[in-house]
Computed example of a mutant assay.
Amino acid sequence: MNHYFTWNDRLGIPLPLLEQDWEMYSQADRTAIVTEWEIIRGTIPDRVFAFEADINRKQAQLFEEESFERSCTLNSDIAELASRINDLHIWYRMNQEIEMKRHS
């Protein structure tokens, strides 16, 4: 992974770490960043699928759970996983913005 990305434990993917405006990077750097991001972006659907599988497992546990405290914990876990999925969808769309900048 190059120095323009940093690992995000919460989402399970590297995220861009751009320290200046996009236009300030050289054309070569921008190309390298976009190329790396396209590779990372390609892994996002698999991450979403994994989080959805976790949600399904927790929902099944919730259906069987009799403890109120444990039910609250499972609901909280499900909400956190759903938030991660939402964030991944936002990052997935990021490529469209970078592509528009690259071609302008």
Rank of each mutant, 00 (worst) to 15 (best):
A53H: 12
E38W: 03
H3R: 12
G42I: 05
A53P: 06
A82E: 14
D29W: 00
D9M: 07
M24G: 06
E80Q: 12
D54M: 09
D29H: 05
S67M: 07
S71M: 04
D77P: 02
A79M: 09
F68Q: 13
R47H: 00
C72G: 04
R10T: 12
L74M: 06
T35Q: 14
P14T: 06
A82W: 10
I39M: 13
V48E: 01
H3N: 15
S71T: 05
T31N: 15
S83T: 12
R30Y: 03
F68L: 14
M24A: 15
S67W: 05
I13D: 00
N8S: 08
I85M: 05
H89G: 11
A60M: 09
D87C: 09
E36A: 06
R57V: 05
H103G: 04
I44K: 03
F5P: 00
I39K: 10
Q27H: 14
H3W: 05
S67G: 14
D77F: 09
C72S: 10
N75S: 04
T43I: 10
E69F: 04
K101R: 15
P14C: 08
E97C: 13
V34S: 06
Y92I: 00
S26D: 02
E66D: 13
D46K: 06
I85P: 07
N75W: 07
L62G: 00
S26P: 06
N56K: 15
V34Y: 01
G12S: 02
E80V: 09
I39Q: 08
N95F: 07
H89C: 11
R57S: 10
N95E: 13
I40R: 00
Q27I: 13
S104Q: 15
L11C: 04
R30T: 00
